[in-house]
Design a protein around this nucleic acid. Structure first.
Length: 229
DNA sequence: CTGTGGATTTGCT
DNA sequence: GCAAATCCACAGG
């Protein structure tokens, strides 16, 4: 099948395309914009599901300024957030509102916390399976598949029990982060979505004008070049 | 397109 | 006990 061939190529290339650990051993507000354009890939029983990261949010660790009371790590380690205080490049998946999941990537050196929340992807491989996972028709628009932090988890089949704590930089991992040669030029920076505390911090980063973004369309922000960050 | 309300697990105040 | 980094159905413009 045509799609299988594409997925196999992606799979074969995965080992050499994995991001480096050092990429994530930095403050999340530095990692977040540089993550745009990279590929999140999930291995399932039906092959790889993959999407380009087009929207993220940074959540700062308690050691960093300014204080970020919206971050799960704000009050220090707990049973839920312990992944955030471990090594960088691991998946922090938690359940929210009783029915959904959100996926983050841990940053900083072990002992320090901080993470990047994935808010939207642009589907790359396995679109039919994503539609099935989301309960949508096979020809659903890409935006319906993976625009939204819990939508993308549903599309890729991510859940806390199965994916929390996975190393995203291990070639044997079922959940990986791949490099991409697609350049991201202009980035939209806004406040973060869906939080009450520290709502004024400009820590949401999105690929400008990408059709797969989540959230209000008229959210104010500023456009910058990645090279200026 | 915008706005409203409900579903319903989890972890901490 | 209750608020939460959400999504969906539905109503109205």
């Amino acid at each position: 099948m045509e799609e299988d061939a594409q997925i196999n190529r992606d799979c074969r290339a995965a080992a050499g395309l994995l991001l480096a650990r050092a990429f994530f051993e930095a403050p999340p507000d530095r990692v977040a914009p540089r993550l745009l354009g990279k590929v999140l890939a999930s291995r399932t029983g039906n092959g790889w599901l993959a999407g380009r990261i087009v929207e993220v949010e940074a959540y700062l660790g308690p050691h960093q300024a300014p204080p970020d009371p919206a971050a799960h790590a704000y009050r220090g380690p707990t049973e839920r957030n312990r992944v955030l205080f471990g090594p960088a490049g691991h998946a922090y998946v938690y359940s929210i509102y009783g029915r959904y999941f959100c996926m983050n990537i841990s940053c900083e050196q072990p002992g320090k916390a901080g993470c990047v929340l994935l808010r939207a992807l642009e589907p790359v491989a396995g679109l039919d399976q994503m539609a099935r996972n989301r309960g949508l028709i096979l020809n659903a628009r890409p935006h319906e598949l993976t625009a939204g932090p819990s939508r993308l988890c549903q599309a890729l089949g991510l859940a806390r029990q199965s994916h929390n704590g996975l190393d995203l930089l291990d070639p044997a991992s079922p959940l990986q982060l791949w490099e991409s040669d697609l350049a991201v030029d202009r980035i939209l920076i806004t406040s973060r979505i869906g939080i009450r505390r520290a709502a004024e911090l400009p820590l949401r980063f999105a690929v400008a004008d990408n059709p797969c973004l989540s959230g209000p369309k008229n959210l104010l922000g500023r456009y910058v070049a990645l090279s200026s960050l």
